[in-house]
Amino acid sequence: MLTKKEQRLRRSRQTRIRIATQGVARLTVNRTNLHIYASLISDDGSKVLATASTTQADIRKELGGSGKGATVAAAQQIGKLIAEKAKAAGIDRVAFDRAGFAYHGRVKALAEAAREAGLQF
């Protein structure tokens, strides 16, 4: 029987195989109990083009110190930030890789904020 983490990683692998055939940059999301991370990875998967997370010092100040990175509001802020960084890198179309996490709560908030900021996926 697979553990919860193994099940998530299995789902994540299937998604990445499907995204690899699309030939577009990948917006990957990772969520922990305390923080949320977003990375923009090139279409061939060779390099990270941009990152944003609630562990960054300037974001932590805006969120009000430590322990506030696990909220929907924080995820929305990271979504906007990663979309701005993607635009600056000349990318407006990405594939959303939720890494096996359910499209709900913080993951959904990050995705919707990135869409509102002009990223297409």
Rank of each mutant, 00 (worst) to 15 (best):
I59V: 15
R60P: 11
R60S: 13
K61C: 06
K61V: 05
E62M: 05
E62L: 07
E62T: 13
E62A: 07
L63K: 07
G64K: 13
G65V: 07
G65N: 10
G67H: 09
K68R: 14
K68P: 07
K68S: 11
G69V: 08
G69Y: 00
G69L: 01
A70F: 01
A70I: 03
A70V: 02
A70C: 08
A70K: 12
T71V: 05
T71L: 02
T71Q: 00
V72D: 00
A73D: 07
A73Q: 13
A73W: 07
A73S: 05
A74N: 04
A74G: 08
A74S: 09
A74T: 07
A74H: 02
A75Q: 03
Q76I: 06
Q77S: 07
Q77L: 14
I78V: 15
I78E: 00
I78Q: 00
I78Y: 00
G79T: 06
G79E: 05
G79W: 08
G79D: 08
K80F: 12
K80S: 05
L81M: 11
L81S: 06
I82W: 01
I82E: 00
I82H: 04
I82K: 10
I82T: 10
E84D: 15
E84I: 00
K85E: 14
K85S: 13
K85H: 15
K85G: 10
A86V: 10
K87E: 12
A88T: 14
A89S: 09
A89L: 11
A89V: 13
D92S: 11
R93Q: 13
R93L: 04
R93Y: 08
R93A: 01
V94P: 02
V94H: 00
V94W: 00
A95M: 09
A95T: 12
F96N: 08
F96C: 06
D97M: 01
D97R: 08
R98W: 03
R98D: 03
R98Q: 08
A99S: 12
A99R: 09
A99Y: 14
A99M: 10
A99N: 15
